[in-house]
């Protein structure tokens, strides 16, 4: 639990440094961002250590076994838990944003931020004491810190260059009208958010949903399936590229290339699809989910731009 929390802390620090570097300090961004970052840390550690397990226990024990919802929950346990967790996080994020907009006095923001940070530090300290019973390895902390500082610097420079490039792009005539009306910073943020959603989270969701239909889980088919699949991690890469290309074709309105992308994917596995009905069903479910999520992301992008 401690190492997971530490990874989350590093992630939040990394992104907050980059986003802070991209922003100019207009209408008190620094203070608001401080409150939001400390609130995210506080919410994570509170949820993972105090709310998550009681919540899961509540759902498993309180739904009576005759109820149809119980069957649904037992069958899709991991997905339901994932969705509920993300909904709670989303709620917390909305609450944080409301908190930031409501209070005008900067000292209130400072107070809230410090309170969140204090509770977070104390609970993280208590967790480390409970789990390791020895003092924290400072060597590893320094290593992580230096890696993330270098990484965030590189990312920040790249994003700044992109931002300047977008400013130049707005001067040229571009086929998409949305590019002209928005400020470059908003465009960069929206594009980044949609791209980030499209990669690893979507992979995890598709894997969770379609794992019920995975033919490799069946022991009789295991040896054959392992023989036929190629590199490890190639499936995730194919999925990422497919979603990226489909998003681009939606964005520029050329729907015919979607057909080409999907048929290339089917060609690559044609032997398995033709011979193994289980695999073809699994393949179709995965691909359809992928296209569905890509379309949802495209709609989100249009709404954001």
């Amino acid at each position: 639990a401690v190492s997971q929390s530490l990874h989350f802390v590093w992630g939040v620090l990394f992104t907050s440094v980059i986003l802070y570097g991209l922003n100019d300090d207009s209408d008190g961004f620094t203070l608001k961002w401080l409150v939001i970052v400390s609130g995210l840390l506080f919410g994570y550690i509170l949820f993972e250590n105090k709310i998550k397990h009681p919540l899961n226990f509540f759902f498993t024990s309180n739904l009576s076994s005759e109820h149809s919802l119980h069957m649904f929950y037992v069958k899709n346990r991991s997905i339901v838990q994932f969705v509920i967790q993300q909904m709670l996080y989303l709620l917390w994020i909305f609450i944080l944003n409301e908190l930031v907009t409501v209070s005008d006095d900067p000292w209130i923001l400072v107070g809230i931020g410090l309170l969140f940070l204090l509770i977070f530090m104390v609970s993280l300290y208590a967790l480390t004491r409970k789990e390791s019973r020895s003092h924290y390895p400072w060597n590893r902390l320094l290593k992580h810190a230096s890696t993330y500082i270098v990484l965030s610097a590189v990312t920040l420079i790249l994003l700044q260059i992109l931002l300047q490039g977008l400013e130049l792009l707005q001067l040229a005539t571009f086929p998409v009208g949305a590019f002209v009306t928005q400020s470059p910073y908003r465009m960069l943020i929206a594009l980044n958010f949609v791209l980030l959603l499209l990669m690893k989270p979507t992979n995890q969701v598709i894997r969770a949903v379609s794992s019920k239909y995975d033919p490799k889980k069946d022991t009789a088919l295991t040896s054959q399936a392992e023989q036929d699949s190629g590199f490890k991690g190639a499936g995730a890469m194919i999925g990422n590229l497919e979603r990226l290309l489909i998003l681009l074709s939606f964005f520029f309105g050329s729907l015919l290339s979607v057909v080409a992308i999907l048929s290339i994917k089917a060609f690559a596995r044609y032997k398995l699809i033709a011979e193994d009905p289980y695999f073809s069903e699994y393949f179709v479910i995965g691909t359809m989910l992928s296209v569905l999520i890509t379309f949802a992301c495209y709609a989100l992008l249009v709404l954001l731009l």
């Binding site: 990874h7 992630g11 994020i93």
Partner: peptide, 18 residues
């Protein structure tokens, strides 16, 4: 503001977990 918060959440929750 809210998109920035969502980005921070997505990156640290999905990309930084081992």
């Amino acid at each position: 503001m809210i998109i920035e918060t969502l980005i921070a959440h997505v990156v640290s929750y999905f990309y930084f977990q081992p």
